[in-house]
């Protein structure tokens, strides 16, 4: 799974969000490192919807602007859980190696 996909699924893990809300949440999750452009985000949302990982939740109109909210599906949640476990296992293994190289810094 690519990082933007992981971040989008993570952004939707605890609550449904609209497009710009997802962009903002991803910036928070990545400590400002990843800033998804709107075109990229919607292509990714289309793909995730087609794969059954996210779905439409509700619509709101705020200040005359249409906001469509998205949420994770059960499949999306399962995939995010599995991917998180995979990354945790890799991170744990990497940290163990780094501890043996740099005992104080790892």
């Amino acid at each position: 799974m690519r990082e933007p996909t992981f971040l989008i699924l993570t952004a939707l893990a605890n609550e449904s969000r609209h497009g710009y809300g997802i962009v903002q949440e991803i910036q928070v999750l990545s400590a400002g490192r990843v800033r998804l452009l709107t075109g990229t985000l919607y292509t990714a949302l289309d793909r995730l919807a087609a794969e059954g990982l996210v779905e439409h939740d509700r619509e709101e109109v705020v200040d005359g602007r249409l906001r469509r909210y998205y949420r994770l599906t059960a499949e999306g949640l399962a995939l995010l859980t599995a991917e998180t476990a995979r990354l945790r296992q890799l991170t744990t293994a990497a940290e163990a190696r780094l501890r043996s190289v740099h005992p104080r810094t790892a």
């Binding site: 497009g19 075109g39 602007r65």
Partner: peptide, 8 residues
Amino acid sequence: ELLSALLD
């Protein structure tokens, strides 16, 4: 929807 996200 896209336009709203862009303007936001």
